[in-house]
Design a protein around this nucleic acid. Sequence first.
DNA 1: TAAAAAATATGACTAACGGTCATAATATAA
DNA 2: TTATATTATGACCGTTAGTCATATTTTTTA
Lengths: 213, 213
Amino acid sequence: MGISERKEREKEQRRNDIIDAAEKVFFKKGLNNSTMDEVAEEAELSKGTLYLYFKSKEEIYFEIKLRAIRILNGMFIESISENKTGFENCMEIGKTYVAFLNNYSNYYRVMVYFENNDCRVCEFKDKCENFFKEDNPLKFFIQIINQGIEDGTIRDDIPANVLAQTLWAQTNGILQFISTKQKILEFTGVKAEDIVYSQYEIIKRGIRNEGKS
Amino acid sequence: MGISERKEREKEQRRNDIIDAAEKVFFKKGLNNSTMDEVAEEAELSKGTLYLYFKSKEEIYFEIKLRAIRILNGMFIESISENKTGFENCMEIGKTYVAFLNNYSNYYRVMVYFENNDCRVCEFKDKCENFFKEDNPLKFFIQIINQGIEDGTIRDDIPANVLAQTLWAQTNGILQFISTKQKILEFTGVKAEDIVYSQYEIIKRGIRNEGKS
DNA sequence: TAAAAAATATGACTAACGGTCATAATATAA
DNA sequence: TTATATTATGACCGTTAGTCATATTTTTTA
């Protein structure tokens, strides 16, 4: 049945085209100031057609979030190395996350949106439920922490699970701060890099296995 | 002119009544699922009247945020003590912030909303611009860190400004994580308290002045 | 290849809701 | 008591996410 397969591909393609169009519109004007009519126009389709491929405006946004996560995951995987210690890899991931914020700020913003609007995310419950079980930056990060505990470069008095989630949550807080609180940074005369550097310094001391370099 | 003063008081009172009503409605159903008609009904006023006292739905929400900040500030001030070191006070503030999340989760959620929707906050630019200059949890926290640096209990190689904002941002990340990622915590079998404890542990090592207890 | 059936696309329409404004009610001043 | 100012009202408006009856295109059938 070559036809149904081709149709499947075409459908997938159209879905992607719609997400592409939505991305353009949303990135330019923000989710709230973008209308589905604009997305439809950008995609050269009628509005009704959008709803054949997606349940809601927010579901399209959620698909963009998935793209963001895929990019971030890819960057993380590229940034680590077998030749480095767990501790070094861990710090590398931090740097990479900051680079993601700088290079893909649009995608980053989409991710933040879903961090903080979990009430609505229920719509995608099924997708979210299984999310952690699949490839996911946090899951990946836990492995790195584990590596560090095993190779003795990261303190071992906190379970890898817990330590990883703590660092992950912290780091999200840092990125969120430097990306939304420019006013405060300006007013206090502090640069985003200062905060990032300070975060590294605290983490270094905070998680390094004592006695090791 | 006793009359105009009384009128002023009455107006202020009515404003507060409206915020009270809005709080009830918003806390019960969430900002997005609450309508201005519902707020008006709860306040026993017509919808039009609401707009005599507030420019928009979101401005009312912003007023609720101000209440939240006032509560948090009060808790912070209560939690510190002249008899404690800067380091101890700093840790105390962390604990207090967690207590705030647990005891005033509705207010906490409002604060988070404005952390992450800064685009819209422009409406309240004037209010926000001056915000940092007034009483503000972060500003207060900077003072505590300064105390710690001065009394030698907190490392002095990072400026108080920077260190305080870093810790603040981190902690926000932690609170946000434990309040929105229950699913992940469940799945990994980690408790919110574990994360909080781990955070304390990392910070302790991370900011304590070496050589001091 | 033509007609029937299935799949896909359309855009006018609806419902919901934030915000407005002409009008009404009430309080104050003259 | 009348004129003026203040406060309140709710019908109405504009916008927009989402729907659905209808139309178009593609595939299947005979």
